[in-house]
Design a protein around this nucleic acid. Structure first.
Lengths: 368, 368
DNA sequence: AGAGTTCGTATAGTCTCTGAACTTATGGTC
DNA sequence: GACCATAAGTTCAGAGACTATACGAACTCT
């Protein structure tokens, strides 16, 4: 730790406060973040210099005293790219700092029977389409992430195990080069959880687990508002919790996994789905003790009655349920969840450390 | 964050380095921690002032140059109390900063059929015995923690759900008063995991899950060397993972939980135990992606063959197993694990923030 | 118009770290 | 034994970031 870390952390707090609770004056910000007005002045000046915030008009609300100058996040002029490769489609979207999906594109293709380079070309194509629109609207893209259905080693950026999809690890660097961006790669369910955390059903939660069905049953675990990736990046594979040891065989080598029982798209009969989910959610509640479970993908289509049944199970058939019941929520994000999560991952890095954006050089050249 | 936080953090790093890698000179410490010699001088002076380290003799090893003065952690003169209440015994131990169990006491009693105040008296008795010995050996006790079999709310210090044991929450404050210490209360399996992390099978791991049988089947989850408690403090209840939906009824309201299948002491036939464990460990590997699973309590008695079988299942029947297999280890801590963990919890607080120990006032009174 | 309030900045002071110079203690060499 | 090379630990000036206090600016209320 050094001095700069403190600065970075405070810049991050200020930016986050502005994005989360809206624009406000320096004085109000100082109070919200817990710093003095003097420090806040310098922090805001720094963010202004990096183009991350703008000064708006002075407050005009009839309050007594000198009106504060409103500091606004420049949320709409900075964004990140979310990309997605699935067995039957490629997609791209650009999300700005406010969390709004500004541009998006999705194409049905047959990636399963295509060569990896073809898949890469398709990905570049949708990405360039979205980036073009973004450039036209003066939105600067600071990076992006690719969502893939399978296990990912986040450090080497290798796709380790993906059913029906081959993606040699060198390809990503070539996509990077062609787009002129640095892309991360991450499991789609993990990214979906990140999207829930920032823009979906988890914005008010500190800890939750998301379960998504659609081309596989994936999970994402968020504890203390941080995504849990596991030691090798393989955590949160909720689809392989055992719900019926005598059930159908699963691709993972065992039998009776949640995914094998309810189908890769969660398209088994509703009764089967709810029963299997109930068992899996009980296990989740016992091992993670989250505030809520968020159902995404096709599972977001469950009816109120089914959700109530699941919540009842979590109250009656878990140890802690009677004292602190676990909520069951449905995702509002639809099928773009992973895509939004990919952009969110990148934007989060910017929010965590605003200094990765260099200060715009606003020094006027002195006349010699 | 303020200035003091940086100082605190650095003091903590130095103390931790000394305890983990042994005594060394200021210059060597500076290099290990990544700070300058000048800063290290002031940090060591601070720790000396708090009585946490001592200066030893100068190095005498025939190296050229001025010999460094060895700084040693005063590990043996500071300790913390670990307490334990079980259905059939109470126990206490005192662990010093080096991790050594210095004094301990354990008594078989019938807590199930006793009034809470009686239980409290028994606890105070074993604690006082150990504290007396500690005082005789000049070991200062900085606090302690009570391990209990059940769900605990760490903030209110309430024991929420414990089978066969009643422990009104006010009692702990009275125990505090009588011992003159501030005691934390925590689930015994969580504390056992903490003990593994610091002094058992997990000292070299960043992420692991411990599973302990004995008066119930408990679990503890450590991710990035931090204990996962869950949002309400109820996480890691591994004993209630479902391994056989058609199996025996469990106290939690469901049926076929690991605990119900292998018995509260893990005393079912070995074959049943290994089968059920295999299923549970697969789920654990899929959701947490740990480096290893640590078996404790009576499960530490499993034979090499059984452990090999479990490891094989984790390789062959998990998604990521072929790339990054999860190890299976047995705990070396025996039945004192939770006890040691309780002390560790307290000592960790001291290591995390050495400033909670006030500086010994070494100012000589000036003659007026 | 003057009093009271609140905002933003400026200034001085504190805390903690760094870097370079300096003192101290030792081993090696002639 | 004198002298040099080497490494440890301290001292001191200085930089970065924060706080506290004071002050001018801008507004409302009477």
């Amino acid at each position: 730790m050094e001095h700069g870390d403190m600065r970075r952390h405070h810049l991050s707090l200020v930016l986050e406060a502005l994005l989360a609770d809206g624009a406000s004056s320096r004085a109000a910000l100082a109070q919200r973040v817990g710093l003095t007005k003097a420090t806040m002045s310098t922090l805001v000046a720094d963010l202004l210099g990096r183009g991350l915030v703008t000064e708006g008009s002075a407050r005009r609300d009839g309050q007594v005293g000198r009106p504060g100058v409103i500091v606004e996040p420049r949320g709409t002029s900075l964004g990140a790219l979310g990309l997605e490769i699935r067995v039957d489609e490629v997609a791209a979207c650009l999300v700005d700092l406010t969390g709004e999906v500004r541009f998006s594109s999705r194409r049905r293709v047959d990636n399963e029977r295509s060569r990896p380079t073809t898949v890469a070309n398709r990905l570049v194509a949708v990405a360039e389409e979205v980036l073009g629109e973004a450039a036209g609207a003066d939105v600067r893209c600071v990076g992006g992430a690719v969502a893939v259905p399978g296990l990912v080693d986040p450090d080497t950026r290798a796709l380790v195990a993906a059913p029906n999809l081959s993606w040699p690890e060198v390809l990503l660097s070539r996509v990077d080069d062609r787009l002129g961006l640095s892309l991360a790669i991450e499991n789609e369910a993990n990214l979906a959880a990140l999207a829930e955390l920032r823009h979906g059903a988890g914005t008010d939660l500190r800890s939750f687990v998301s379960v998504t069905a659609g081309g596989g049953v994936g999970g994402g675990v968020v504890l203390e508002r941080t995504l849990v990736r596991g030691h090798h990046g393989f955590a949160a594979e909720i689809g392989h919790l055992v719900v019926d040891p005598g059930g159908p065989a699963c691709s993972c080598g065992a039998s009776g996994c949640l995914e094998a029982v309810i189908g890769r798209d969660g398209d088994a009969p509703a009764e089967v789905v709810v029963d299997a989910l109930a068992s899996a959610l009980r296990s989740i509640a016992h091992v993670f003790d989250p505030q809520a479970v968020v159902l995404g993908g096709t599972l977001a289509g469950l009816g109120d009655g089914d959700v109530a049944d699941l919540e009842a199970v979590l109250v009656e058939r878990t140890l802690g349920g009677r004292w602190h019941p676990t909520q069951v929520r449905r995702s509002p994000l639809g099928r773009d969840a992973a895509l939004i999560g990919g952009a969110t991952l990148t934007l989060d890095r910017l929010i965590t450390d605003p200094t990765i954006l260099p200060p715009l050089d606003s020094t006027k050249e002195p006349m010699s």
